[in-house]
Design a protein around this nucleic acid. Structure first.
Length: 721
DNA sequence: CCATCCGCAGTTTTT
DNA sequence: CTGCGGATGG
């Protein structure tokens, strides 16, 4: 037998059991921090070493590019040779690869382009207009999610059951949208999956080729699969000796976008021989944190059941802080952050997690005030920036003139006298003769079928693109993009924008040129795709990091959803209030409430050493001050794992909040929250916050004349009114 | 073609 | 209170 000590020795018993299970169906229920990626990676190595599985017989599927890259890298490191032969990637990346190979059988065009959500929405908008429908009655956003949801259920417009006029219109829009995609050679994200699924489903001989090839199928984050992805997997893995999936029902937080936890159950039900392994030993969090997490998630019904435990120490109890308002909450957290940095924590080991993006603002302001570097996750990513999409639209149009979406994007950007009128005429000509906008433009120019002015402008545009195509044709990718960004006139437009926006746009375009050049240089030769096609697909499928800033040691701010899969030494979980978290939209339905609870569980289990949870009694939301009670999730945490930082002070709530002591604590008689006070210099105001004890006690007062101030009560000589 | 104003919505997000 | 998108007017 081959030496497998390097593969098995670093594992605990359960991990070993999973990794060395006989080939077959294996479901690994992997709790948070239980080493799930490690198990996946070691399983791949085990198959290679012990079962002599060749890399090309393995298919490893993940949801994000990041996870795919990590898995590939770790397999290579463990095996000590290149894992290049492994088909490792995201559902979308792998589907894309299949479709490029078999574009003809899939009924696509050579060189088809990928629409990202933004492109998709623009196209839907145009379709709605072309059907003479009101955008206000048929909001593009909703239509977009309708279409994507249909595709995620493997449903084509023809399959749709129509009960009423509304449904009929939806179906018409979907049909027209799909037709527009076919004409333009465009494929949206959901279509990548559905098309590749149909490709295999409808071509049994092709399917069996892949089913024979993929003897070992490994899937990460299985609880996040939607119906289409589940069907895709079952089809692709139909011939596999070995089907190894890893997931955690307690971390299923994407139900709202079609993920179905039930797939975990279905996986075992569909095949009773499935081997089940639970990973319950947690290597990440200290005891109190785990205790809190376990107790919280225990409130959910119908779990597959796991109880995390740690061999490590109990650590610090979970801190719970009841803030007066969101500003107080931010100040408290930032103060803790300063303390942590003082204790030697790296800033990047500290994370503030929140339910919704709007909450980041106060934290940003407070961190800025204190001069602490931070990074907010989410937001616009590199390839989603308008200037990048502009340049790439020129590039796309040159390579695929049928691409109406790109045509519309660039035809009058920069402005060149091709306005709405001209475009309307052009669109109707294109539609009536069944050609693309580009072809219609060429025709209009030669046949002078439009007003002279419009023809001139169009002729200039057509000539410009032909020139760009010729001159960029043989250049390396980076040079071609540089050429196009200048030749199109875009660069000039950004340069003319003297706001600092223009400057950053120019920088981004330069960065695009670098990225493209680097991409081409590092790329393995691929017979299926030229570099330009591959780069454009890369731009759509991997939108790039959130902020392209150079790496520096920053406090991390992100939503709970973005935090999944990450860990930090100290986690601050902010805004645990009824209505915010759990969110008011999710409180009514038990299923959605449980998903919120899982989200909270995900948040808690991100913490390694320390966890601080906070709520605010008042919060400014949508411009108005709202009252909030602490989240039920706080009350679900056992007090033996908690440490309350300060008695919760409560305004106008005599009994206090259930479970939370409410004290009438006052630094000085009459100085209670909400009390009206007077100060010699600042005038009259209202007490909005209290903190500290004895000589250090401070109050925050919102003065009518001069605004909010913190005052040390021992010195300020406040008189109550 | 651009600037400006108004109205409206406002969980979570990857590909 | 924001920020976006659309309509409007110069």
């Amino acid at each position: 037998m081959d030496d497998v000590s390097d593969i098995l020795d670093p594992l605990n018993a359960a991990q070993r059991e999973a990794v060395s299970a006989e080939p077959g169906r294996v479901l690994v229920l992997a709790g948070a921090g239980s080493g799930k990626t490690r198990v996946l990676v070691h399983r791949a190595a085990w198959l290679a070493r012990v079962h002599h599985a060749s890399p090309w017989s393995m298919l490893a599927v993940t949801f994000t590019n990041k996870a795919a890259a990590e898995m590939r890298g770790r397999i290579e490191r463990l095996l000590g040779f290149s894992a290049n032969g492994i088909w490792a990637g995201t559902f979308h990346g792998l589907s894309h690869r299949l479709l490029r190979r078999h574009w003809q059988e899939a009924g696509l065009r050579d060189g088809f382009q990928i629409l990202d959500s933004d492109d998709q929405r623009r196209l839907i908008k145009r379709v709605i207009r072309s059907l003479d429908l009101e955008e206000s009655r048929w909001p593009p956003r909703q239509i977009q999610s309708f279409i994507n949801a249909a595709k995620d259920r493997c449903e084509r417009p023809a399959d749709m059951v129509v009960n009423d006029a509304h449904g009929a219109v939806l179906r018409d829009i979907h049909t027209a949208y799909q037709a527009a995609c076919e004409r333009g050679g465009q494929v949206d994200f959901a279509e990548l999956l559905l098309r590749s699924y149909e490709l295999l489903r409808d071509n049994p001989s092709l399917a069996s080729r892949y089913q024979e090839q993929f003897q070992h199928v490994l899937v990460d984050e299985f609880q996040d699969t939607n119906s289409l992805q589940y069907a895709w997997l079952e089809l692709v893995a139909a011939g596999a000796r070995d089907f190894f999936v890893v997931g955690d029902d307690d971390q299923s937080i994407y139900g709202w976008r079609g993920a179905r936890v039930e797939h975990i159950r279905q996986f075992t039900n569909d095949n009773p021989d499935t081997r089940l392994v639970r990973l319950e030993q947690n290597y990440r969090s200290s005891g109190h944190i785990l205790g809190a997490a376990n107790a919280l998630i225990d409130n959910n019904d119908g779990r597959l059941g796991k109880q995390l435990w740690t061999a490590g120490s109990a650590g610090e109890p979970v801190e719970v802080y009841g803030a007066f308002n969101e500003l107080d909450e931010a100040r408290f957290i930032v103060q803790r952050i300063e303390q942590a940095i003082g204790e030697g924590f790296d800033r990047s080991e500290l994370a503030i997690l929140y339910r919704s993006n709007a909450q980041s603002r106060v934290f940003e302001e407070t961190l800025l005030e204190r001069g602490i570097p931070y990074r907010v996750y989410g937001g616009l990513r590199f390839f989603e920036r308008a200037e990048i999409k502009d340049v790439l639209a020129y590039f796309r149009l040159i390579r695929q003139p049928r691409d109406d979406a790109s045509f519309e994007r660039v035809v009058n950007h920069p402005p060149r006298g091709i306005g709405g009128k001209t475009l309307d005429l052009l669109r109707s000509q294109a539609r009536s003769s069944g050609v693309s906008l580009w072809e219609a433009a060429e025709l209009a120019v030669t046949e002078r079928s439009l007003p002279a002015r419009a023809c001139q402008a169009l002729a200039r545009f057509v000539a410009l693109l032909q020139t760009l195509a010729e001159e960029s044709g043989n250049l390396p990718l980076g040079d071609a993009i540089a050429m196009i960004s200048t030749g199109s006139g875009l660069r000039e437009v950004y340069a003319a924008d003297r706001n600092d926006r223009g400057e950053s746009r120019l920088e981004n375009v330069d960065e695009l040129i670098n990225v493209a050049a680097r991409y081409e240089a590092n790329r393995e030769p691929d017979p299926e795709m030229d570099a330009a096609t591959a780069f454009l697909a890369h731009a759509a499928l991997e939108a790039g990091e959130g902020q392209a800033d150079g790496w520096q040691d920053c406090v991390q701010l992100m939503t709970l959803h973005s935090a999944k899969g990450l860990e930090f030494r100290w986690v601050f979980l902010a805004g645990l209030e009824e209505g915010l978290f759990p969110h008011r939209m999710s409180i009514e339905e038990p299923g959605r409430l449980e998903e919120e609870r899982r989200l909270c569980y995900v948040g808690i289990t991100r913490a390694r050493e320390r966890l601080t949870i906070s709520s605010a009694e008042k919060r400014r939301l949508h411009g108005e001050e709202r009252h909030a009670t602490p989240s039920r999730f706080i009350h679900e945490l056992p007090s033996e794992h908690l440490h309350e930082i300060r008695p919760r002070v409560s305004v106008r709530r005599p009994g206090g909040v259930s479970g939370m002591p409410s004290s009438g604590w006052q630094p000085q008689p009459g100085l209670a929250l909400g009390a009206r006070v007077s100060h010699a210099r600042f005038g009259d105001g209202v007490v909005t916050n209290l903190e500290g004890h004895g000589a250090d006690a401070r109050v925050q007062v919102n003065f009518d004349a001069v605004g909010s101030k913190w005052l040390v009560t021992a010195l300020a000589r406040l008189t109550t009114l």
